[in-house]
């Protein structure tokens, strides 16, 4: 930027490739903070259930810490943005473990049913709740096929600057939108899974054929949960 280019020119030049290299091996997806997100990218996650360990809760812990989801000792009303799901095949007893969260559908039922438009899908595929217009009717929770949403049943305090949350609104996984917009190219859960050495969760751009997530899906295939609903989820699973 000291080369006489404006920030926007600099980013446009780099943005053509989708990413810029800050240091060898460190890529940052550059998004001009002034520019709106576009559908040129579609953010998503790929979960390899073979790499996910049943006794590991690192992704859940990381999410809770990232967004300060507190354990209030009331499990039926406490918010869970991501949970570990154990799935057992009654025939033979094969058991797999996987993280379940908002699947960031292309055609989200929660968005369809929301009376005020507070549930919405960003251009880059992230499904969010605009808590400024959420009236707390909970119809989205009725509609979500994945049980991905939580209602805030009490007054909250100590919210973090990047994770505003409060009583009377519905919330769910934001795909760490604050990290995505900051160009970090990861989510708290993917980061934690990586750190724990399991590498079961991969974050990336599903629209970019050269991204790691696209390459892996192309090579090994991946499934949607409740694919029969035709929602085209942004979170895909391998080895279900």
């Amino acid at each position: 930027m000291s080369l006489g280019l404006t920030r926007r020119e600099f980013l446009q030049g780099a943005g053509a490739a989708g990413a810029l290299t800050l240091a060898p091996g460190v890529f940052l997806y550059a998004k001009d903070p002034e520019a709106p997100v576009t559908d040129a990218v579609r953010w998503g996650l790929l979960v390899d259930t073979r790499l996910c360990q049943e006794d590991c809760n690192a992704c859940v812990d990381a999410c809770n810490e990232e967004h300060n989801l507190q354990d209030l000792g009331r499990p039926e009303t406490d918010a869970q943005w991501i949970r570990k799901l154990t799935v057992r095949d009654p025939l033979g007893g094969r058991t797999i473990s996987l993280p379940m969260m908002c699947q960031h559908c292309e055609n989200p039922p929660c968005v369809d049913v929301c009376p005020t438009g507070a549930s919405f899908r960003r251009e880059d595929g992230i499904v969010l709740v605009d808590k400024h217009t959420c009236i707390g009717c909970r119809y989205c929770m009725m509609a979500c096929p994945y049980k991905a949403r939580s209602f805030i049943h009490e007054n909250l305090t100590e919210q973090l600057p990047d994770a505003p949350r409060g009583k009377g609104c519905v919330e769910s996984c934001t795909l760490c939108v604050h990290k995505v917009d900051a160009g970090e190219n990861t989510t708290a859960c993917a980061e934690a899974c990586h750190k724990d050495g399991h590498q079961a969760i991969l974050f990336g751009d599903l629209n970019d054929p050269d991204s790691e997530i696209s390459k892996r899906i192309r090579e090994f295939g991946a499934t949607q949960i409740r694919a029969d609903l035709g929602l085209n989820t942004g979170v895909r699973y391998q080895n279900l």
Partner: peptide, 11 residues
């Protein structure tokens, strides 16, 4: 979520 399977979680 998974037809034909048994599911369990903390949720």
């Amino acid at each position: 979520l998974f037809p034909g399977m048994e599911e369990s979680s903390s949720f």
